[in-house]
């Protein structure tokens, strides 16, 4: 089976993710920490479900978040200039 990208932003391949799982990563967040999958400009919007399809989703029923792979502010890239404005306010 040909290798393929999972995280398009950080160029993390399926073998990278599989290696992280083999090394003990047991949820999407741990895969992110080991491989950088989900740390690029799209912030996991695209690869989160693909990583979860490989490592499994965490939890059933009512959850405190949408995924183990955390979502942080800002949810989209923001220019430093715009962040400085917030600080000054």
């Amino acid at each position: 089976m040909n290798d393929h990208m999972i995280c398009r932003c950080e160029d993390v391949t399926a073998s990278d993710v599989r290696a992280a799982i083999d090394a003990g990563a047991c949820n999407a967040q741990e895969v992110k920490m080991r491989t950088r999958a989900g740390m690029g400009p799209c912030q996991g919007r695209v690869c989160r479900p693909a990583v979860e399809a490989m490592v499994g989703v965490s939890g059933e029923g009512v959850l405190q978040s949408t995924s183990s792979m955390t979502v942080h502010l800002p949810i989209r890239p923001v220019s430093l200039q715009d962040l400085v404005i917030i600080r000054e306010q």
């Binding site: 009512v62 959850l63 949408t66 942080h72």
Partner: peptide, 27 residues
């Protein structure tokens, strides 16, 4: 398609995983 919920995911509310709805949605 998967419901897009990033803004709410940064707030203090809970979610339900529902394959019928396509993903994890805010309660």
């Amino acid at each position: 398609l998967i419901p897009l919920n990033e803004l709410l995911a940064t707030l203090d509310c809970s979610f339900l995983r529902s394959p019928d709805l396509g993903g994890t949605v805010p309660v």
